[in-house]
């Protein structure tokens, strides 16, 4: 069974009292299998964030079906949606969204604390995560005391610590320079390979995208094309650039 299956998702914004209707997603379908690392790319305004929000159950589609682990979260009430989200999904945001009052460590254990996991297990898990993400030395610092890349790696640890079925990332490298981007992407890659994490990532950055197994391109809310990694990451990077030039829009100047 696929981890995530979205069928014919349409999202229409506005339309009430004279407001212009915007079709942000138009019959879009996507399926993600276990252990996959999928990238979503597309020009600005093509509907990527909208798609991610719908998959993340924090927004509802105008029509279409969504199944995560075979469950349709749209059928749950507010409280159960929240619980479902917290247990099955992990999030990584462009601006990290770590809480300033908490140390990195406390931020990371938040999902486990909410589930009232016992402290011993929590400690073990944090240690394990910090090891992989190489943030051991800064665990007791506050978010504003560390760099953006380090904050993002802490956020990744938080997204993964409760072993979610899928991690949803919205431009995780959007605020980072190339070195920090590379570190973050390496982390995601190793989590995918060593911890079998299933990841879906929205990105603008072809370099970040080259870490994925396959890339889904989206244009004007519709599926545009899909490319699958064949050989090396370098070759995949070139493929991505080529496809982006097909996609048009603001990608032309990168290629």
């Amino acid at each position: 069974m696929s981890v995530l299956k979205a069928e014919n998702i349409t999202k229409i914004y506005g339309g009430k009292k004279g407001a212009m209707k915007v079709k942000a997603l138009d019959n879009f379908s996507i399926t993600i299998e276990n252990r996959e690392f999928v990238g979503v790319m597309g020009p600005s305004g093509s509907g990527k964030t909208t798609l991610l929000n719908i998959l993340a159950t924090i927004d509802t589609p105008s029509s279409g079906e969504l199944y995560i682990n075979g469950i349709n979260p749209m059928k749950l009430d507010e409280k159960h949606t929240a619980l479902f989200r917290r247990r099955n999904l992990g999030f990584i945001f462009q601006d990290y969204n770590l809480l300033d009052t908490l140390s990195l460590k406390e931020n990371i254990i938040l999902p486990l604390a909410l589930e009232k996991v016992d402290p011993k297990t929590i400690e073990d898990k944090v240690k394990d995560m910090a090891e992989i993400l190489n943030i051991n030395d800064i665990l007791n610092k506050k978010p504003y005391e560390v760099s953006g890349g380090q904050q993002q790696r802490a956020a990744i640890a938080r997204a993964l610590i409760h072993n979610p079925s899928i991690i949803l990332a919205d431009e995780p490298t959007g605020n980072l320079d190339s070195k920090a981007s590379q570190e973050v992407m390496e982390s995601l890659k190793s989590l995918n390979e060593e911890r079998n994490a299933t990841i879906m990532m929205v990105t603008h950055d072809p370099f970040a995208a080259s870490f994925c197994h396959r890339i889904v391109m989206i244009k004007d809310g519709k599926f545009f094309l899909e490319i699958v990694k064949g050989g090396s990451r370098h070759a995949f990077f070139k493929d991505i650039l080529d496809s982006l030039s097909l996609l048009g829009g603001n990608y032309n100047d990168i290629a």
């Binding site: 924090i58 929240a82 619980l83 945001f93 809480l99 999902p111 938080r158």
Partner: peptide
């Protein structure tokens, strides 16, 4: 504000 928003995103219920 944004703290509450991110908490909401990672699945904190309104009751909590």
């Amino acid at each position: 504000r944004w703290e509450f928003i991110s908490l909401k995103k990672i699945g904190m219920a309104y009751d909590e």
